[in-house]
Computed example of a mutant assay.
Amino acid sequence: MHAFDVIGDPVRQRILELLLLEEQSAGAVAAAIGKEFNISQPAVSQHLRVLRENGFATVRAEGTRRLYSVDTAPLQDMDEWLQPFRAFWTGRLDALGTELARGRRARRTTRSPANPSTTKE
């Protein structure tokens, strides 16, 4: 399975977000994801298996519990693969940041006490 197919699923994305916070038991992940997405424990287990088999998650046994955590290697590989494409959006994001800053300045200027016609009385 291609890395983008693995993390393209919203349930698996959310599992990774939870595992980024801290290592969690399979039961804790199943409870949180099951509640949020209204899916069964076996369905969550399948998503955990996909993440594990594709290298996005690791599992270790602690007694009878299975503790999952994120393995960042595939994410770093994806980041490296995306690097050449960043040039296509970096400039646009910078331009968006500039426009947002202009809008904030314009709003401050129109609400300024120096411009009494825009102040509330």
Rank of each mutant, 00 (worst) to 15 (best):
S117Q: 13
Q83V: 14
N115F: 13
S25R: 13
E99N: 05
A95Y: 03
L48Y: 08
E22F: 10
T118C: 11
I7E: 08
R92G: 03
L93S: 05
D71R: 12
A30M: 03
L67G: 10
R111T: 06
P116K: 09
V50P: 02
I39E: 05
V11G: 07
T90F: 00
L82H: 07
L51C: 11
G91K: 13
S25F: 06
A3R: 13
E17S: 15
Q46M: 11
V6E: 08
L100N: 08
I39R: 06
V70W: 03
Q24G: 06
L21Y: 01
I7R: 10
A61K: 03
E22G: 07
A32N: 08
R105G: 00
V44R: 00
I15Y: 02
P113M: 05
P84V: 01
S25I: 07
L21D: 09
T119Q: 15
T90R: 01
R66K: 15
G8S: 04
I33P: 03
D9C: 12
I15E: 01
H2A: 14
V70I: 14
H2Y: 08
Y68C: 07
V29P: 00
N115L: 15
I33Q: 04
A31C: 03
E23I: 07
Q76A: 14
A43R: 06
L21S: 07
K120V: 03
F85Q: 15
R60H: 02
L21Q: 08
R108P: 05
V70G: 05
R60T: 07
E22V: 08
T119I: 09
N38G: 10
P10G: 12
N54V: 02
R52M: 12
L16G: 10
I7T: 09
A3V: 03
F88V: 02
R66P: 07
R108V: 08
K120Q: 02
D94F: 02
E22C: 09
A43F: 00
E36P: 02
N54C: 07
A106H: 00
Q46T: 12
A3K: 14
L96G: 04
N115V: 14
K35P: 01
A61C: 00
E23H: 12
H47M: 08
R104P: 02
V50Q: 06
A28H: 13
V44W: 00
S40I: 04
E36L: 12
T119R: 09
H47N: 14
A30I: 00
A87S: 10
S45A: 14
E121T: 03
F56T: 10
A57I: 11
L20K: 09
R105A: 11
I33W: 05
S25M: 11
A101K: 11
L100F: 07
Q24T: 02
S25H: 09
P42K: 08
P10F: 12
L20D: 06
F88E: 12
A3S: 15
L16H: 09
I15H: 00
P116E: 10
V29M: 01
T109S: 04
V50A: 09
T58F: 12
K35N: 09
A57Q: 10
D5S: 15
I15T: 01
A101Q: 11
E80Q: 15
R14K: 15
Q76K: 14
Q13Y: 06
P113L: 09
A31D: 13
E53R: 06
T98L: 08
N115W: 14
L51M: 12
R107P: 03
R108L: 15
E121S: 10
T90I: 01
E36C: 02
L48A: 08
T58N: 15
L18R: 13
E17R: 14
L82E: 13
R102A: 09
A31Y: 01
